[in-house]
Amino acid sequence: MGNGYAIVDVETTGLSPGRHHRVIEVAVVHVDFSGRRTDEWCTLVNPRRDLGAQHVHGISADEVRLAPEFAGIAGELAARLSGRVLVAHNLSFDLRFLSAEYARLGFELAASGLCTMELAGQFLGASSRSLTACCEAADVPMCGARSALNSARAAAGLLMRSLDRVGDVPPVRLNVPQVVNAYATQRRRAHIPNRDFLAERVEVLPRVGTRRYDEYLDVVDRALADGRPMEEELADVACALGLDAAEVMELHRGYFTLVGELTGGRA
């Protein structure tokens, strides 16, 4: 049956591991099958490259300089995931990055799990995709500061609200040497990003209702709200989700029409 749930969140240098973007922070929150939060763990990760949009994640070069590389936390992370059901908000996003990090080390992370973005839409009355909007709909407390740990805690809250309707999901099996209590580096403080006019409206955009489409548009939401370059990274995301050019074009047409309506042309 497994050991419960591992709710994961990652902060990254960008939106696509296919563009050599890396994990720079990872958090895991454990929840047992009764819905009790039993443990949590978080560390910064040194990506050995630039940190990308620092105004978005708030992680500085000084903070990651002495942090372990992913190889240094891979065993610890494997121990915290293995035997548990993997959970994340837009699971496909976090899973792509974690799979890419393990693949660099010669290991395969072949996992499925639960997506709280989907659970919140199905069971908790959330009409939007964002973690903030889903938590508001489900009356789940969420810290306003941005960090992998705060996001994982919020997703754990969404899971706990949904547990009575969650079916059987296979736990993660990771054939990675498991090292417990590897050293972790914490960020000095969680980041409170500037929430501008566009970011606030993107946060409440309605979901489409098709899982792959919402997974893709959630990444578009992040890119647009954060002011990130989009074209090449989104092409990689679309490919990873199995979306063809016609589907992407139709999604973009509907999405940016709606953004224009919500922002009055200020996007």
Rank of each mutant, 00 (worst) to 15 (best):
N194L: 09
S99A: 15
D168I: 15
I7F: 01
C135L: 02
A27I: 06
C115N: 08
L114H: 06
S16L: 04
R65S: 13
P141Y: 12
V10R: 03
D221P: 00
T185V: 15
Y255M: 08
R80N: 02
M117S: 09
A148Q: 05
D164W: 07
A148P: 03
A235E: 14
V29I: 07
E101Q: 09
H191N: 10
P177Q: 08
L109E: 03
R211S: 04
N181D: 14
T257C: 07
L251I: 11
E118L: 12
L15K: 01
D39E: 14
R173F: 10
D139I: 04
D196T: 07
V64Q: 04
T38N: 04
E261K: 09
D50F: 02
F97H: 10
R266A: 10
L198C: 03
R212T: 12
D164K: 11
V140D: 03
R207C: 08
L91H: 11
A138N: 08
F197V: 04
T38Y: 06
V87M: 01
G72Q: 04
V87W: 02
E232L: 12
G264T: 09
H191P: 04
G157K: 02
Y255L: 07
S92A: 15
E101N: 04
V45P: 00
N181L: 05
A184G: 06
L198K: 04
H30R: 08
P141D: 09
E247T: 15
E76K: 01
I73S: 00
E231Q: 13
I59L: 06
L124R: 11
Y255H: 14
R212P: 00
E215L: 05
D214S: 10
V8K: 00
P177I: 10
L66P: 00
R212H: 08
R36K: 13
L119R: 05
L158E: 03
V23I: 14
A126D: 13
L258W: 11
I7L: 07
V204L: 08
S16W: 13
G209L: 12
D226T: 13
L95A: 13
G121C: 04
L258P: 03
Q122V: 04
N46P: 01
L124N: 08
G75E: 08
